[in-house]
Amino acid sequence: MSIYDFTVKDSKGNDVPLSNYKEKVLLIVNTATACGFTPQYKDLQDLYLQYKDQGFEILDFPCNQFGKQAPGTNDEITSFCEMKYKTTFTTFGKIEVNGDNADPLYKYLKQNSKGILGDSIKWNFTKFLIDREGNVIERYAPITNPSKIAGTIEKLLAKQ
């Protein structure tokens, strides 16, 4: 099993097979529009613009489980991100990342990530870095600014 076996919903409710992202380096992030970490959207966009032409994608999954900090509909969230932070990476439909209703992708990411962060997602803007083969390489805490991940992304992009 790999991340390519999962299908997720886009912000319009359409199925998107993650196999569409084969051979890409991915940063998968659970986000929120009313969080102290929300300004990271700018840093995520900067990272995306810097590396997208080399095979890098950001997959943005809004989540309202932490302090109800992702209010609104999928369309409202997408519009907010595009207008306020000029995001051009893909924002998917709102999901849950913990508990009985956790999205299967996030169950997989948590089970297959290294580190001392535990089994549950602690807060918004937890980041998972995926290599071109679909392996979870690293899990980053919400406090990790996306710019700090650039060096690792470059190394993964250099591997063909």
Rank of each mutant, 00 (worst) to 15 (best):
N135M: 06
S113F: 12
K9G: 01
I137E: 11
K155C: 02
I3E: 08
C35N: 14
E23P: 00
S113R: 05
L109P: 01
A32P: 05
I149K: 07
T144V: 14
D75H: 03
L117N: 10
F66A: 13
F66H: 12
P62Q: 11
M83W: 04
T126A: 08
N145V: 07
S113I: 02
K12L: 15
V25F: 13
N98E: 12
G134H: 08
V16Y: 07
K110E: 06
V29H: 02
N74K: 01
N145D: 14
T38R: 09
L49Y: 00
K22P: 03
N74G: 04
G118N: 10
N74W: 05
F66W: 14
G115T: 05
E133F: 01
K9E: 13
A32F: 01
T88Q: 15
A102T: 04
K42M: 05
P39N: 12
Y51L: 10
K86G: 03
Q65M: 10
L129C: 03
S147C: 00
K68L: 13
K159D: 15
L27D: 02
F37Y: 15
E154P: 04
D119C: 00
F80T: 00
L49W: 00
F89H: 10
L49T: 07
K110H: 02
V29W: 03
G134S: 07
N101Y: 07
R132M: 05
A150Q: 05
Q111G: 02
C35I: 02
E154V: 09
I121L: 13
M1C: 03
G72K: 05
P39F: 01
K52L: 07
